[in-house]
Amino acid sequence: MFRFVPAIATGVPCLLLALNINTQPFMKGSNNPSMEIPVQIERLDPAADALLPQHPVWHRVATGFTWVEGPIWIHSGYLMFADIPSNSIRKVDSHGDSIWLQPSGYRGQEPYGGKESGSNGMTLDPAGRLTVAGHAARNVMRFESMDPHGTVTILADSYQGKKLNSPNDLVYGPDGSLYFTDPPYGLRTQNDSDPHKELKINGVYRIPNATKQKPGSQPDRNALQLLVSDLPRPNGIAFSPDGKWLYVSNSEPKFWMRYSVKEDGTLGAGSIFLDASNDKRNGAPDGIKVDAKGNLFAAGPGGVWIISPTGKHLATLLTEKSTANMAWGGADGRTLYTTTTDSVFSIRLNTTGLRP
């Protein structure tokens, strides 16, 4: 995630849109026009027309937060996301919005002293187990069941004897390894001079055979692989549909990287996939999701960037406030959920997303 700009206080979080059993959004009080917002689109290439409905609409799912992140669609039909400043993971289903876990990141007795005390990005492993970038917890953890008080397995918490910075986002590779980014945004000062920062780098890492780690066991700290060490602020991360490419967003300065994936799961040389460093709009490269055709849907300046598999900027779904991340959901995988500063939105698209 990127540094948040606090929104105007709106009181307690409230649910504006529930999800029914068929995973299609419906609105409480559907005559309230504030719950549906026509999407403003920056169209840059005709190829975007095949991906977008003629008149797309944002549906507001939940609001009243400060900085939301890490959405993930759970197979049984509901959405989860992190509200980082309140140190919680939340659940949205047909019953409304509720706290699933609090605290989700920092668990100390003293006040945290920073803006982002909670957890961050989330994904599922092939067995459907929730895997979380701990952010202020400075680890990567896996929940062995959907009981928040059940067994939690720490998959990584240090590199070469030094604490991780603040794991931010994560994705499983085709071989069951877990890849994650580790910028300093979950530290108290969110910068490289933070007195609690032990690593000099902001890396991209791989946990080999992460899916095979036994529930509740200690991480194999010697096995953690540092794949990328030269990015200033690695953030979002995603694979191409065929698993041959790994995409990593860099928030400061603003650009996306692409790396070839070797047979052993390590990475080849990387190159800038798309440069947005001259775009001064609110927001920065952050979370990334990919559709079945290999198009990237990436949080970026101004909203959600749609990027072709060749690195061409096709369109931007404009958002009034900075968007941090997104997730494919719904029964058919054609609903894109976004975490946009203080609210969660959904939009129906004409393309099917790749879901964990």
Rank of each mutant, 00 (worst) to 15 (best):
A50F: 06
T352W: 00
L296K: 07
P85C: 07
F65D: 01
G270W: 04
Y205R: 07
A50K: 15
I21A: 13
S88D: 06
R3T: 11
A47Y: 01
M80K: 11
M146D: 13
D157K: 13
L296E: 04
A137G: 14
D286V: 06
D264S: 03
D83Q: 05
P148G: 10
W305A: 13
G176C: 11
P285G: 07
L354P: 01
S229V: 00
I272T: 15
P301A: 14
N22Y: 11
N250I: 00
F2Y: 04
Q109M: 13
V92C: 12
K244H: 10
M35C: 11
G29Y: 12
E110G: 00
A298I: 09
N235R: 06
Y172G: 10
A223T: 08
L164I: 09
G186H: 10
P195H: 05
P174D: 11
G108F: 11
S158L: 02
D93P: 06
P13A: 08
K262Q: 13
R206P: 04
L19M: 12
Y106E: 09
I154P: 02
A136T: 09
L274D: 01
L124F: 07
A127S: 13
G311A: 09
S229D: 15
G287K: 05
P126K: 14
W328K: 07
I207Q: 02
G105C: 09
L199K: 03
Y159R: 07
S229R: 13
I306L: 13
F273C: 03
W73Q: 12
H196L: 14
G121E: 04
D175F: 06
R138T: 10
L296H: 07
G96L: 03
I41T: 15
R43P: 00
G118V: 05
D220Y: 02
A298P: 06
G236P: 08
R258W: 02
E263A: 14
N325W: 02
Q213S: 05
F239K: 08
A18I: 09
G236Y: 07
T123A: 07
K163I: 00
G70A: 14
D157T: 05
I8G: 05
F143I: 04
M146F: 15
A331P: 01
A327N: 07
E42Q: 15
K289T: 14
T151W: 01
H149L: 12
G243N: 08
P167I: 09
P215V: 03
M122P: 00
F4H: 12
S346M: 09
I154A: 03
A136F: 10
R233E: 14
G70N: 05
M80H: 10
A18P: 04
P241R: 06
L79C: 04
A269P: 01
E116M: 12
A62G: 03
P148I: 12
T131N: 06
L170S: 09
Y247V: 03
I237M: 10
V12G: 02
Q225A: 11
M35H: 14
T181V: 02
D220E: 12
P309G: 04
S145Q: 06
A276R: 09
Q218S: 13
L314A: 08
T340E: 15
D169C: 08
A133D: 08
G77M: 08
V140D: 08
D286A: 04
G294P: 07
Y247H: 12
S251Q: 07
P174W: 04
E69H: 05
S34T: 12
A50P: 00
R60I: 15
T151C: 13
P6L: 02
P356M: 06
G300F: 03
K289Y: 04
L130M: 09
P25Q: 01
